[in-house]
Structures are given as structure tokens and as C-alpha cells.
Design a protein around this nucleic acid. Sequence first.
DNA 1: AATGAATGAGGATTCATTCAT
DNA 2: GATGAATGAATCCTCATTCAT
Lengths: 193, 193, 193, 193
Amino acid sequence: MPKIGMEPIRRKALVSATIAEIGRAGSLDVTVSQIAKRAGVSSALAHHYFGGKEQIFLAAMRHILTIFGAAVRGALVVSEGPEARVRAIIRASFEAGNFREEVIAAWLNFYVLAQTSPQARRLLKIYQKRLHSNLVFAMRPLFGDKAVSAAEGIASMIDGVYIRQALCDHRVGREQAVALTMEHFDLLLEQAK
Amino acid sequence: MPKIGMEPIRRKALVSATIAEIGRAGSLDVTVSQIAKRAGVSSALAHHYFGGKEQIFLAAMRHILTIFGAAVRGALVVSEGPEARVRAIIRASFEAGNFREEVIAAWLNFYVLAQTSPQARRLLKIYQKRLHSNLVFAMRPLFGDKAVSAAEGIASMIDGVYIRQALCDHRVGREQAVALTMEHFDLLLEQAK
Amino acid sequence: MPKIGMEPIRRKALVSATIAEIGRAGSLDVTVSQIAKRAGVSSALAHHYFGGKEQIFLAAMRHILTIFGAAVRGALVVSEGPEARVRAIIRASFEAGNFREEVIAAWLNFYVLAQTSPQARRLLKIYQKRLHSNLVFAMRPLFGDKAVSAAEGIASMIDGVYIRQALCDHRVGREQAVALTMEHFDLLLEQAK
Amino acid sequence: MPKIGMEPIRRKALVSATIAEIGRAGSLDVTVSQIAKRAGVSSALAHHYFGGKEQIFLAAMRHILTIFGAAVRGALVVSEGPEARVRAIIRASFEAGNFREEVIAAWLNFYVLAQTSPQARRLLKIYQKRLHSNLVFAMRPLFGDKAVSAAEGIASMIDGVYIRQALCDHRVGREQAVALTMEHFDLLLEQAK
DNA sequence: AATGAATGAGGATTCATTCAT
DNA sequence: GATGAATGAATCCTCATTCAT
């Protein structure tokens, strides 16, 4: 019962199913059939739309980064002043959604994939650059010349805290993660005065 | 040409080959045959000695952690004073060896595996605890009550910087990595005074 | 050249091929590939349709028992009177088809499998019960209370004669098999008078 | 620690281990290593002594038939008169030892092997002939010309009852088995009068 | 647009067997 | 006499991918 206009719906369903399956497996050892079944379509259709397994994964990664980017942008527009902006970025980075099992799994596997897949690496670079420029923009008024280096410190702290908390019990992780990173920011602020 | 006493030799060869192959592939998508071939034995022998693919991987991970632990211990014994000890741990964490392609690949895949394999998670916990207690021990004289929280900051910074630099060009990465983490430590020190 | 509605056709072909291969080998040491090749499909398809080797075997066993059951039923409906019914069952049990090499092989291996496979054992029990109730029903008018015990004697004779003749030269076996079992029935009849 | 004169001990241990393993598995899907391990020797030694897997199996079968033959002979020498001798053979056939799980497994697999292995078939023929001649010898005084046919009936009954009871609950099986076969013998006797 | 049918390629694992010691 | 070492060959099973419909 092929209907017209189904393509975007199917694509979205497949992307969601991919993220869910990666979360379930914890790795990219997920079959196209499993994804397709969860999405309620045939595996042949998944190939038809995305061209292959790797493309399906990349679409899923792109989706996660898009969501994350939107969250950061949303947090930024309601923040006033440099300090508030930095704190907004930190909080957005540890938003509850990012600690969902499947999102953690996606990120960790993303790192793995980035080693070998040029497309994955490109995506990762985009995420890193965006985070970097957001931080630098927010921190420039506070840190002047040292904004770049301070931003790198914050970004590293975010990634390090995330990876450490992601592999612990997730419920306590979130609060501590924000606290730890904020502490680092406080230190930077103090020194800048 | 079977000789007796070959077991430990073969085991070592297989562990090295496993790390090398994971490095080459960037992921755990490595066949036992590839590993065995690189080690110069049949895949049947690899199974004979380790029991299965996962056991081979875990043995490789254990090896990497052992090496890393030894490096840290070595750096600690030649350091005098709390500050030197912390700096030694930081430097050991970004030792050239840890930026070898295959070690990076092993670490990233280790994180992925830790989500689902209880044995991998246990290993990771051991690494984290050891790093933590080394840091706390060295930092207690400097930070008193706040040593634990400060140690967590350093540990997170190490992991975050590592993961970020690992996915950039590795040659510049190493220097910057040490510098970034040291900066964070300097901040902490200053505040503690 | 995939066409729709092929599944039942493939399943039948695979079941036939399984019986033929078991007959050729004399044992269950038959590879899925051999079966698939004889059926004219890939081994992957065999797995796809049946799920695994054991399921393929069980489907084959079920098929043999179905055929046998049908033969007995067919023989019974054209028989009139108790005595004729018993003789019909005996004759059906030693029908030429049951002495085909592959059917003998299937039966013998069935016995072996019944020791360990619950599903095989269940199938065997069904066959035994059906034979038993057919015999008791036919023999009740002749033997009254003793029908059950007499039926067990006949059933045992059938199985014993079958196994002995099956392992001799099959051509002479069939005639003798019927004769031997009939003799036993004659004895029972005489005594019952 | 090679010692002299160990060969017969090792051989016996291997034969016992083979029977035990076949019993455990219910089939001939038993590895030489399992057998060797149970016998407390290396698998290489098993090959050294027997030449190969099939030879090991045949030695085990030979052992079972030897035991069985001895039991029958033993029962015969203490029996007086034709009737007692037949009853002794029947009882020996259903001796408790023959209902041990591993002996049943050996027999059933023996039947399977007899289809394709000339050596196994030869062994089976020997068993059948010996049983046959024992029965005919005992029954001749009672049945005269009809002794041969009557003996075949008894032999078939023994095999059929055995196979049926072997695949039921073994404890009740033994008693019923003897009773059923004796009943058949009683019928023959009555008719012969 | 969508899928059932089908497969080739490959991978983990097992095992009988061999051989130097 | 006895074994640890080692492997080649085989087997079950999986899966991404293709294609006719």
C-alpha cells in the first residue's frame, strides 16, 4: 500500500529507530533489519532511502547533533549577559536528554566512528567548532585575549565530565556534571577578575 | 614444530596483534583471523588460548591498562612533593604512547564496550579509581578537604582533553593536551593559596 | 527472479531434500548446505525459513509422520471388521514406502534424537499413541479387557520387526516383516477364541 | 610419566569413557577430547591407541556386546530345561544394565551406524545371529520345525519391546518389558502344545 | 512506493588429526 | 609411552545488499 508523501515520514521513523537500536545494543552492531523492523518497514526500504548502513548511521548522528544544536541555541536566546550565556551552554550540554542511554551510546560510537569515517569526523568537527565559537563569543567580554584558551578548557571539561558521568549511574550523574563544570568556570572567572 | 612453553609467548603475540588490529580498524570490527594472522598463528589457536573473541579483547584492554598503570607508578616514584606528583600524573596521562593510533582506538572502543560488557566496565572502574586515588593522595596536602572535588576536576579534564586531542592531528595534540590540563591545575593551585 | 508465494514451495523442497540427504548419509551428519543445494536454494534461505538446523530436521520428521499417519488412516477406512482393521494397520506399517532407505534412516535417527530433543520425543510419543489407540480401537471387539495388552504386543512386534528387517536386505525384508507380525496376531486371535 | 604396561588400562578407560560420553550426549556427537578428558588422557593418546574416532566407537560397541553376551551365557548355564533357557535369555535381554541410559544410547546409535559402517553392521549381525542361535537351540525341543520362526518372533519382540521401553520412563520399563515378552512366549508355548 | 525473495560473502567456532619432543 | 602445540577444514549462522514485482 504505497502512499505518496511517505518518504519524510519513513526517513524520520528510520532515524529514530536507528538511535533506539544503537541505544539498545550500546554499539553499532545493529542490523539494518532490526532498525527497519522497529521502524515498521522492510529492510529493503531502508536501503532504498539511505543507500546503505553507514548512511543510516550518519543520518542518525546528524539528527542528534541537530537536536543538540537547537537546544543550545534555545538556551542562548533567553540568556542575558556573557556569564549567563556560558552557564546556559554548560547546562544545555548536560540536559537530561543527553543522558538518555541511547544518546550516550550514540556519542560514544560517534567517537569511534570518527576515527575512520571522514563523514563522521566532519560532523564531529562541526559540533566542536560550533561549541567553541559559542563559548568564545560568550567569553570574550570576560576573558579578552584569553577567551580562546579558556573556552577550550570549558569545552574539554564538558566532554570529560560527560564521558565520565555517562558511564556511571546516570541519575546522579547529571547534577554532578553541571556542578563540576560550573566549578571550573567559577575558577576561571575568579582568576579573570 | 611444536615446542613446549609456547603458551605465554603466543598469548603475548595475540594480545599485541589484537591492539594493532584494533588500531588499524579503529573499531572492534576485527576478525579473529586477522588477529591470528598478524600474530603468526591460526585462528583456532587464538580460540584455544582465550576461549573466544571477547576474551581476546579484554586481555588486550587489560594489557593497555597495565602498561598505563606502570607508567604512572614509574612517574610517581621519581617525583618529590605533592605538586610534582600531580604534574607527573598529568604528564603520564598524555605520554606519547597513549597517543599512538592503536591505543586511542582501544580507549574509544573500551568506552563503548563498557556500556554493555560487565567485565569491560569493571576494568574501566579500576582505572578510574586508581587515577582518582593517586590524584587525591597527591592533592590532599595542597587542597585539604577540597582534594576530592579538585581531583575529580583534574580527572575529568584529563579525559576530556584526551578525547578531544585524540581525534585531532595527534602530533600537535600531545603538547597542547598537557598545557591545557596544567593550566587547569594552576588555576586550582592559585585558588587554594 | 524472486516471485511471491514461494515460501511453501521452498519449505517443501527443503523438507524433501532433508529426508533425501539423511537417507544418503544414514545419519543426521548432514550439512545445511548439502540440504540447501539439493533443494536448489542457498543455505541462507534454509536458515531464513526454518531458523536453524534442528528445526529443519524436525520439519522433516513431522512430514514423515504425517505421511505415515495418512497411509494408516487410508488403509483403515477401506477395512471392514476388527480383524481386517488390525491387518490393515500392520500392512500399512510395512508399506513399501517405509522401507525406502531414507525413511529407515529417518526413523533410526529419530529414535536417537528422541533421547535428547524434547520436540522429537513429543513427536515420537504422538506416533506411538496414535498407533496404540488405532490398535486398541480395532482390537477391543476381539479381545475385550485384554485389548490394551494385546495392542501393546502388536505395536512392539511392529517396531521390533521393522528395526530388524530395516537393517537387512530391504527387498526380502518387507514380505517377511508382514508375515512375522501377522503370525503374532494369529496367535493372539487363536487364544482369544 | 609414561609407564610400561599401561596400554590395556588406558584402552579400557577410553572405552568406558566413550560409553559414558555417548550416554551423556545421547548421540555420537561426542568429541575425542571429551572422551580423552574423561579417561584422564590426552586426545592424542586416544588416536594413538585406536587410530581414529570411528575405531573408538567400535571398540565401545564391541565392549557392550561382549558384556551382553557374557550375561546371556551366564544365565544359560544356570538354567535347566528348554523353557527355562528361553526365559533366561529374555530376562538377560532386559537386565537392568541394558536399561542404563548410556547403554540405551549406545544401542540406538549402533543401529544408526549399522546403516553405513560395514564394521558396525558386522557386529550387529553377530549379535543377532548369536541371539538367534541361542533361541533356536533352546526352542528346538519345544517347537521342532517351527523353532526358527518362533525364535524370530521372540527376537523381534525383544528388540521391539526394548526400543519402546527404552524411550519411556526407564524404571517402569524394565518390568513391563519382561512381562510383555514373556506373554508372547506363553502364547507360543500354548499353541505348541 | 514498497517488499518478499534470495544470496554471496564472511565470521566465529569446533574438531579430528598430526607431530616434535 | 604420552602429550602440548598447532592447524586445516568444515559448519552453522548472520547480514548487507540486490532485484523482480
